[in-house]
Amino acid sequence: MLETRAVVVRKEAGVTLVRADGASGCSVCEGKGCGSSKVTQLFCNKPREFQVENRINAAVGDEVIVATVDGTVLRGISLVYLLPLALMFAAATLASVWSGGQDGYVAAGALSGVVAGFAIAKWISIRPSRQQPYITRLFIE
């Protein structure tokens, strides 16, 4: 189970939004070792809010620990990277076979495979999931 610290920023109609502390990629070296905090700062320059299950009925302003079920991150990586890549190769191969190896058709096939992969990943990710992150406990220093 992966856990991170967050702050409850909003609660309304059964929905709880938290803002995770994105200072570092992980809590092992607190952003001083591998450089993951620099990558985080480069791509995530504004605070992001995430919807979570509030199993402990935390109030707005509470610092909490948010957890995700094992396998959630791997599933997300597979959707975002592996699915489009696999469809790109499959579509490029099919286009190569059908067109006799003409470069334009192979490139168009690869592009259509990537686009289809991202579209399918987006469709899968917006469906309700039983693997939604949840608040496990209040953060106490």
Rank of each mutant, 00 (worst) to 15 (best):
M1F: 06
M1V: 10
L2M: 09
E3K: 15
T4Q: 11
T4C: 14
V7I: 07
R10S: 11
E12L: 00
G14T: 02
T16Y: 12
V18H: 04
V18Y: 04
A20D: 02
D21K: 08
S24K: 07
S24Q: 09
G25Q: 07
C26L: 05
C26M: 08
S27D: 02
S27E: 06
V28F: 15
V28C: 14
C29L: 12
C29K: 10
G31H: 03
K32A: 08
G33I: 03
G33A: 09
G33M: 02
G35V: 01
G35N: 02
G35M: 02
S36M: 08
S37C: 15
V39W: 10
V39R: 11
Q41P: 15
L42K: 10
F43G: 14
F43L: 06
N45L: 11
N45V: 09
P47A: 13
R48T: 14
E49R: 05
F50M: 09
Q51A: 12
N54S: 01
N54C: 10
R55V: 04
A58L: 13
A59D: 14
V60Q: 03
G61H: 13
D62F: 12
D62A: 13
D62M: 14
D62W: 11
D62N: 08
E63I: 09
E63Y: 03
I65T: 07
I65D: 01
A67M: 14
T68Q: 15
V69K: 10
V69C: 10
G71W: 02
T72Y: 03
T72Q: 05
L74H: 13
I77S: 11
I77G: 14
I77V: 12
I77T: 10
L79V: 03
L79C: 04
V80K: 02
V80R: 01
V80T: 04
V80F: 01
L82S: 15
L83A: 04
P84S: 01
L87N: 06
F89A: 01
A91D: 00
A92K: 04
T93Q: 11
T93W: 13
L94N: 00
A95L: 06
V97R: 09
W98T: 05
G100V: 10
G101I: 08
Q102S: 15
G104Q: 06
G104D: 13
G104A: 13
Y105S: 14
Y105K: 09
V106N: 05
V106G: 03
V106L: 00
A108E: 01
G109K: 12
G109P: 15
A110T: 07
L111K: 04
S112C: 14
V114A: 05
V114H: 09
V115R: 02
V115N: 07
F118S: 08
F118P: 11
I120V: 08
I120T: 07
K122H: 08
K122L: 06
W123Q: 04
W123T: 08
I124D: 15
I124L: 11
S125I: 09
S125M: 02
I126W: 10
I126Y: 05
P128K: 09
P128A: 08
P128D: 12
S129H: 08
Q131C: 05
Q132I: 03
T136Q: 11
R137S: 10
R137W: 06
L138C: 06
F139Y: 03
I140E: 09
I140A: 06
I140N: 09
